[in-house]
Simulated assay, not measured.
Amino acid sequence: MSERSEPATSSAEPLARGERMDSATEAFVAHRNLLFTVAYEMLGSAADAEDVLQETWLRWAGVDLATVRDQRAYLVRIATRQALDRLRTLHRRKESYVGPWLPEPLLTSPDVAEDVELADSVSMAMLLVLETLTPTERAVFVLREVFDLAYDEIAEAVGKSAPAVRQIAHRARSHVAARRPRDVISPADTRAALQAFQRAVETGDLQDLFDILAPDVVLLSDGGGRKQAILRPIVGAGKVARLMTLGFKRLEVEVTVEPVQVNGCPGLILRLDGEIDGIVAMRVEDGLVSGLYFVRNPEKLSRVERETALSR
């Protein structure tokens, strides 16, 4: 499907090349955070999302702006197509990934947490749920449920008819609803669980850690074959508590824990002798930690020392 929209009804004369490029740059910069967020939610990788932005810019720079009715929708359409292409490549890459694959964590600003829907959509737990969708289902779900695009706009972005997109959206919503966290937990409850987890890690108290874990808690650890990590999910409060406390006790280095905002939710940066070793994000349900996501792969830690701007 062509990326060119129908000609606008404006009678404005074509822009001179320099003026057109300035206008194109201004529009792209204005929507850059939105485009990054779209690409990141589809891919779970900031590095790949940045590549999508570069590809989007190259295509946008060649567009006749006089033919574009809605610059935001047009840019989202380009970015979605580029992300879909890359998502299929990522799927093949993940098939040979060493151990569990987790999304690349982002250090986010407080305003992301204040937007409850945005924070939920970029949380580690939700991104893992989105991983269970097909590429087209994921694109449709993200564009409709998170960014509220019209069905006809989504249809152009994914190369489907509007009725087909409605069916895909319904199927994706049902799929996500069956797998997403059961309750919306307040940030205060999540912070309380995180603080308890932090104290348990710092003191090595097995009972303190056990008390805040759900009976069926799941720990996923992503080292990507570059750092030691658990190669399969660990399930159960007893197993997870013992693994976490004994693991840190065995380290003959100084372990420090710093509370941060990770993907719009409270998280922890773990440092060994002052160097970042990993990021811990968590899923909280009914006041207990039901999911722990420990990212140690160095390739996924490049953005945890500076905030990443996200927007809808």
Rank of each mutant, 00 (worst) to 15 (best):
Met1Gly: 12
Arg4Gly: 06
Glu6Phe: 15
Pro14Gly: 15
Arg17Ala: 15
Arg17Thr: 12
Glu19Trp: 02
Ala24Gln: 11
Val29Trp: 10
Ala49Arg: 03
Thr56Cys: 02
Trp57Leu: 08
Asp64Gln: 10
Asp64His: 06
Leu65Val: 11
Ala66Thr: 10
Thr67Arg: 15
Gln71Ser: 13
Gln71Glu: 10
Leu75Asn: 01
Leu75Cys: 00
Val76Ile: 09
Val76Tyr: 04
Ala79Asn: 03
Leu90Trp: 12
Arg92Lys: 06
Lys94Ala: 07
Pro100Ser: 04
Leu102Gly: 02
Pro110Arg: 15
Asp111Met: 06
Val112Leu: 10
Glu117Trp: 12
Leu118Ala: 04
Asp120Leu: 03
Val122Gln: 05
Met124Ile: 07
Leu133Asn: 01
Glu137Tyr: 04
Val140Gln: 02
Glu145Met: 12
Asp148Pro: 10
Tyr151Asp: 13
Ile154Trp: 00
Ala157Phe: 01
Val158Cys: 11
Lys160Glu: 08
Pro163His: 13
Ile168Thr: 04
Arg173Ser: 10
Val184Tyr: 09
Gln198Phe: 02
Arg199Asp: 00
Phe210Gln: 04
Phe210Ser: 05
Gln228Cys: 00
Ile230Val: 13
Ile230Thr: 07
Gly238Phe: 06
Lys239Cys: 13
Val240Glu: 01
Ala241Phe: 08
Leu243Lys: 15
Thr245Gly: 11
Glu252Met: 14
Glu254Leu: 14
Glu254Met: 12
Val257Gln: 07
Val260Ser: 06
Arg283Leu: 08
Ser290Thr: 11
Phe294Arg: 14
Val295Cys: 11
Asn297Trp: 01
Arg312Asp: 06
